[in-house]
Design a binder for these strands. Structure first.
Lengths: 352, 352
DNA sequence: CAGCGAAAAGATAGCGCTAACACAAAAAAT
DNA sequence: ATTTTTTGTGTTAGCGCTATCTTTTCGCTG
């Protein structure tokens, strides 16, 4: 049994592994094994150690673990889209999982002009892996750079699949299809659509889901009901203006995200159209915007926090896998969406 | 000159301090001194070391620094208000500064029911300091708990000053005064006000600024123009409904935050009032909500990111100060606000 | 019950860095 | 000229933990 040395350098009052091992009457190594959940420890010993840990309120010093143990994963979350509702959810998820996985997180905003030398900057910062939310996740140039620099990457909410890069997506096509089908089921036949920013593959997928649902019901899309947006409130506002200024007007408008849907609602008000009585509106993403407008938006919920956590988890596995020599192949995960019914969609009947 | 040992445990290819010292022809300690910006190094030596660092692309291993060096600051950001626009800015600022100051950041959401034993949980997690954004920053009970547990704290956006706790605020009273004065200058005389949630001191300060500006111009507040809100979109929506349903109606409504202002705009539309032609509306905070409504809101900009950075900075200084024995006294910082003019306020003249 | 292999636990040696002290050379004070 | 102080640098000894190797313990077979 080792005696605990009192060093003048010890500043914290936190118990160390030595104290735990002394109390439990085992060696430090055994405590370490218990902490790390290794198998080769007798149950009785394990219990004794766990008791000692609980008694002392011991928590491993992560700096020491990193130093002695394997490696630290440094993961960067890059973003350039200041849609704060999305970003904050992303951050929360990423932070949680980074803490859980013992990864270090670096968060950086990048402008489009920085893309040229992103990889170099990241390498200089000893970043191991990168998480790319949209629209960064759709930049082929960026992904190629990262790949060349041998950086692991996880791309979020894009269907552009790369072989050596994790992707975490939603089935945008299916979700948009579900929403459109829902509108049709509510009696709508003339359904408008506002496309998202073409710099994101999700935009196209959502559009295709819309078209497919329409054609499945024998409806053909009306060009005058379809407008281009860029995911911003303003673009939704302008697009709705365009659609609603026509001679013939839809009874419902499906915007490719909540911000644009809010823009549609604002325009509807300007046109003195009651939502949802005279115009049903629906969005996509279920960001906080969806409930910060009136009426509250019927939308598609996207599990952003979960997606963010998964991204970190996959990257940590990749990094450790690569270090241990056994490759962890790139995964493409598709999470479930959910249609959230609120008050911006009403049933429609021709007779009304 | 020491020879560099090749150990089978070395896994990373990152250069270590030993490699730098070998290249520069000095001891590791000298390199450490250069890294940490200590004074006692001859300029010539410093340059040589810096060159070596640059050549090798050396970056200190932070785990080793923490372990060997002083202490790690563990700072928790607690929040319970899921106003995502505010949260994401807060997170960005806190993350940046935590990285710069070498602090570890823990982000946790707390429900009201958790308040009872927050301090205990934090102590168990070995948290040194806590950042409290509103409305947590106004919980006296919470602050007392933290104080009893000897946890450092920084409270954001509250004027409730505690002696042993940093505070970072805006002059809410002055800002609200400025905004109200601005409305008066635009010709408005009948100005409504929507109060914020009374659980935050800022609400009261903003209200007082409004009242003072009014009385300075010889105007007395009209009770029917003043309504209670709680900072949510919905509450602004309802409050505006109440104000605008009266016989006499204001020409402008100043909401205590942007979300409520957006609610006011929505209600105005329902009442077929054009904003800003028939009703001017303004908000407070300049969150992303301010530009996600139409017309875009004239509001008060609050430098949230900067406030968050300052909070981390102050806390790190406190923690280190306490450890070094020289106390770093609690600071109360008041940052500058800015009136952002957009399109939700129009000039008003009686003749119109 | 010796003998063997596997399982459990311990001993040792660092991970990369810095606090604390040591020490020589230069500067300042006596 | 000698002592004292200052300055720049090096040496030593860990920080708290885990990889690796070694030893002990244990269950089992013949």
């Amino acid at each position: 049994m080792a005696t605990i040395k009192k060093s003048r350098r010890r500043t914290t009052s936190s118990p160390t592994i030595a104290e735990v091992s002394a109390l439990a009457g085992v060696s430090a190594m055994t405590v370490s094994r218990v902490i790390n959940g290794e198998q080769r420890v007798r149950d009785e010993t394990r219990v004794r150690v766990q008791d000692a840990i609980a008694t002392l309120g011991y928590r491993p010093n992560s700096a020491a673990q990193q130093l002695a143990g394997g490696q630290l994963c440094r993961i960067a979350l890059l973003y350039n889209n200041p849609s704060s509702a999305y970003l904050s959810e992303l951050l929360v998820g990423v932070l949680e999982q980074a803490a859980a996985s013992g990864a270090e997180l670096i968060v950086e905003q990048f402008g489009d002009s920085d893309i040229a030398n992103i990889a170099q900057i990241l390498v200089e910062q000893r970043i191991d892996a990168v998480i790319l939310p949209p629209p960064l996740s759709d930049s082929v140039e960026l992904l190629e750079q990262l790949s060349r620099a041998h950086l692991h990457a996880a791309i979020i909410a894009t269907s552009r699949i790369h072989d050596n890069c994790h992707s975490i997506t939603l089935d945008d096509e299916a979700a948009a299809h579900a929403m459109t089908a829902f509108l049709i089921k509510q009696g709508h036949r003339r359904i408008g659509f506002i496309k998202g920013n073409p710099n994101q593959t999700a935009s196209d997928h959502r559009y295709r889901g819309y078209i497919r649902a329409l054609s499945e019901q024998g409806l053909s899309p009306t060009p005058a009901f379809i407008a281009q947006g860029d995911f911003s409130f303003k673009s939704g506002f302008v697009a709705a203006e365009q659609i609603l200024s026509g001679d013939d007007v839809p009874t419902a408008i499906f915007a490719s995200n909540d911000d644009m849907a809010a823009g549609v609602v604002a325009t509807a008000h300007r046109f003195n159209l009651k939502v949802p009585e005279q115009l049903s509106v629906c969005g996509f993403d279920d960001t906080s915007m969806a409930v910060s407008t009136w009426p509250e938006l019927t939308t598609i919920r996207q599990p952003v926090i979960e997606m963010a956590r998964l991204a970190v988890d996959l990257l940590v596995k990749s990094i450790n896998g690569m270090r241990d020599g056994d490759a962890f192949p790139a995964q493409n995960s598709m999470l479930d969406f959910e249609l959230i019914e609120r008050n911006s969609v009403a049933t429609f009947s021709e007779t009304a």
